[in-house]
């Protein structure tokens, strides 16, 4: 499959983009966008779920190696890879069930729903595991909301940029 190359390239580019550029943004001192989940979000729709889990785990763990965070990125990537079929069905409805879904052909609203659910789920798990105590619950929610909005904005931009022409 010639798509392998594309996905490996996407993996490397997103990882480096995240580690070398986006982790230095720190808007207002605490808003940090995370766009590497885009790799999991854009995995082929008909991909075997087990393969998706392993790929998500690899992506998350690679980031953990750079960030010294143990397994928090791996865990949050696993969660969104696991709920992905559910979210896809919820956002795209019947098209997903009939396997006729073309991601870039769907309406903006459906794509937005899909991205937003995935991103906020990912951020919530990640920031909770990072704080690792109920003491910081407000901090976790605040970080999830602001960083999530920023990530969502960046991802929508990126998806528009890399969109394939029909």
């Amino acid at each position: 499959m010639s798509n392998y190359g594309l996905h490996i390239l996407r993996f490397v580019i997103l990882l480096l983009l995240q580690v070398l550029i986006l982790n230095n943004i720190k808007l207002y001192g605490f808003v940090n966008p995370y766009i590497y989940p885009l790799f999991i979000i854009l995995l082929p729709l008909n991909l075997n779920q087990i393969q998706a889990l392993f790929l998500a785990f690899t992506m998350g763990l690679s980031l953990d190696f750079f960030e010294n965070t143990g397994g928090i990125h791996a865990a949050s990537c696993l969660v969104i890879a696991y709920i992905r079929p559910l979210v896809l069905r919820f956002s795209f409805g019947i098209n997903y069930d009939y396997q006729t879904l073309k991601f870039y052909n769907e309406g903006f609203k459906q794509r937005f729903n899909y991205l937003a659910i995935m991103i906020f789920a990912h951020h919530l798990v990640m920031f909770s595991l990072e704080a690792f105590s109920f003491q910081h619950a407000m901090l976790v929610l605040k970080n999830t909301l602001y960083s999530g909005l920023f990530s969502l904005f960046l991802m929508l931009l990126i998806i528009q940029l890399i969109r394939k022409e029909k």
Binding site: G70, A74, A75
Partner: peptide, 24 residues
């Protein structure tokens, strides 16, 4: 299974002075 591994690494990272598997 994978979640267990990830959570194990997370717990390990939150304790001081254990040998760390995941490190930059």
């Amino acid at each position: 299974l994978l979640m267990f591994v990830a959570l194990f690494l997370t717990v390990e990272a939150h304790s001081y002075h254990t040998s760390k598997w995941v490190s930059s």
